[in-house]
Simulated scan of single mutants.
Amino acid sequence: MQSKALPSKTHFQSLDGLRGVAALIVVAFHVFEEFSYGDHVKQILNHGYLAVDFFFLLSGFVVAYAYDDRWDRMSITDFFKRRVIRLQPMVVMGSLIGAALFYFAKGPVFPPIAQTSVPKMLLVMLIGATLIPVTTGTLDIRGWQELHPLNGPAWSLFYEYVANILYAVGLRKASNRVLAILAALSAILLVEVSLRQGDMIGGWSLTVKQVHIGLARLLFPFLAGMLLMRSGKRIHVRGAFGWASFLLALCLCFPRIGGHAHLWMNGVYDAFCILIMFPIIVAIGAGNGKSAGSPADNRLAHWLGALSYPLYITHYPLIYIWTEWVDGPAHPSGHTALPWIIGIGLWCTAIVIGYACLKLYDEPVRRWLSKRFLGRATA
């Protein structure tokens, strides 16, 4: 059944662009993460993992902006049609790319790959295309206990759907006072996790501890994004997109604080970024309204925003191969520029793949699905 057509809303170009900035940094974070050999303190672009928390805050803002005033013309079914059309095609593509590259990462870093049959791998691919999480048992075909072993970052899309469900069934009806109370309570949960483990890393496994972390990372940012949109709080500065991008990059690339001896110090930093800095950055980005600034800023922000989701959801199968090479026996001994050259090339390759997926797959598929199920050309 075709949904009632609703007019499209103009995007906040700066916020789209900030999503792209965060996506570029998180890919670089994953590329250079392997040079730390598992030691978070030594990671280059150390806080790139916080990009996910920033994505959740943006999501709360954008979902509230796009749908809060449409419920008199839209059912819950209509809402989920729109969200599935927006998110699911690239989830499927990420699972397909993960399957296509799966056996290229076979080696001592990922021992289960060598014992994984093609039928089992294809079963995990099909499950991953639905975003249903796999258990940590026989379907953990990589050995990292991921919700989605073929495409690790899909865990955050699982929580994105959780947020959308919560929004549709209850949060959309909540007053700002109720949202503020919920945000305050979720901030306590976030701070508890951050101080206890020294960072906000986690959420990608189906264990009690990891689900705890995943919910802590989701709830406050999403609620804060909704509140920020509804409150109309904006920070107006000249060159808003540039300043917001600079502050975001500074937060995500800042060195680790406190070292192994004082993990709580880095936990304070992570909480400060999520609770304080990210809402400020979004308020700055939204301060110019729908425009990112100059025509050049608008074009750059539009391109970055369009690229962000395909880049984020398709890059990690390359990281698995990279991890096997960096941490495995094939890695060259001694100090050499080769890993850096390959790492930068991998980052560029991920951008090319993400952009190709956007133009050749994601946009055409969403146009077709929108026309078929929503009665209009875009989702």
Rank of each mutant, 00 (worst) to 15 (best):
A283Q: 03
G287I: 03
G334E: 12
E324F: 01
F272Y: 04
G334K: 08
I274K: 00
R234Y: 11
T314M: 01
G328M: 13
G328T: 06
Y269S: 10
F272T: 03
L300Q: 04
H260W: 12
H315W: 00
N266S: 13
W322K: 08
F246G: 13
C253P: 08
L227R: 14
M229D: 14
T314L: 02
W264A: 11
S245E: 09
P255Q: 07
S245Y: 09
Y316M: 00
N288W: 09
I280D: 00
S245I: 09
K233T: 13
T314N: 04
R256P: 06
I274L: 04
I284T: 06
W243E: 02
F241M: 03
W264E: 07
M226V: 05
N266A: 14
P339G: 06
W347A: 05
I342S: 03
L338M: 13
E324V: 02
G293S: 07
W340C: 08
S294G: 12
G343Q: 09
I280T: 13
P221N: 15
A244N: 04
L304W: 04
M277K: 00
G334Q: 13
F246D: 02
G293W: 10
N288C: 02
S333W: 05
I274F: 01
I313W: 00
H335T: 08
R238E: 15
F254R: 03
Y309F: 14
I342A: 13
R234H: 13
R234L: 10
C251G: 07
W347M: 09
P221V: 15
R256A: 15
L318H: 12
T323W: 03
G239N: 08
A249D: 06
